[in-house]
Design a protein around this nucleic acid. Structure first.
Lengths: 109, 109
DNA sequence: TCATCATATGAACACTTGCTCATATGTTCA
DNA sequence: TGAACATATGAGCAAGTGTTCATATGATGA
């Protein structure tokens, strides 16, 4: 007969967050899981930047950057302000920096 | 004429990690960007578990779990030990917990 | 109001990804 | 050695994702 895990399962189940929370967590990290978005967030690390500057920095299309900024904004990872024709993007809070830093730590060990 | 970003670009470029590092960072977070893997890591949060227990907990195929454990192991996020026929998996370091915790913080604000 | 710059958006396509199914590997015990 | 259990693996497929291309929206200044 297959072995039994009743004890462990009951214990772990009790500590498990709701499915919805875990789904949201996955969705959040999915956003960090793309090099272009990582680069954008890194670029905004110290200062705000306009869309075309980011595009020039990453040597990518304005459209591609704009699409990604939309994703980042929807996840509350970046915020923006308009100044004339130009729109400046910045990181919306410090979690971005901490998350990336933790990831970096894991890599460099 | 389009506006100029020379100053900002030079500044940001200097602080930008190598492309390879950013690629690795993206690849790492990509692994956190899946609900099944998040659940597995959460399940291992406190204690090691064998494959079939995880499968039972998540109500998923043994094969599906095994495939994901392989991904997690390749990224050094989990480690395993054999005990007879059973193989127990555990988190390989504390970064997993910190990364998930940071993500959780971002969500609950 | 018209031309130009800055950004956003939608459709389409190539590429990736996670699961399933079938099967292989590895271990134990009789 | 063979049967049963635990896990791993490979191929295949449906669903998701990031970029491009064309075009739309919005703002400025002449």
């Amino acid at each position: 007969m297959p072995h039994n895990h009743e004890a462990i399962l009951n214990h772990v189940k009790a500590d498990m967050p709701a499915d919805e929370v875990l789904q949201d967590l996955g969705d959040l990290f999915k956003i960090f899981g793309d090099t272009t978005r990582i680069k954008i967030m890194y670029a905004l690390h110290e200062d705000e930047m306009c869309v075309c500057a980011i595009a020039e920095l990453l040597n990518m299309t304005q459209s591609a950057i704009s699409h990604q900024l939309k994703v980042l904004k929807a996840a509350n990872l970046v915020a923006s302000r308009r100044e004339g024709k130009t729109i400046y993007y910045r990181l919306s809070d410090d979690h971005v920096k901490s998350i990336i830093a933790q990831g970096y730590d894991h890599l460099t060990e």
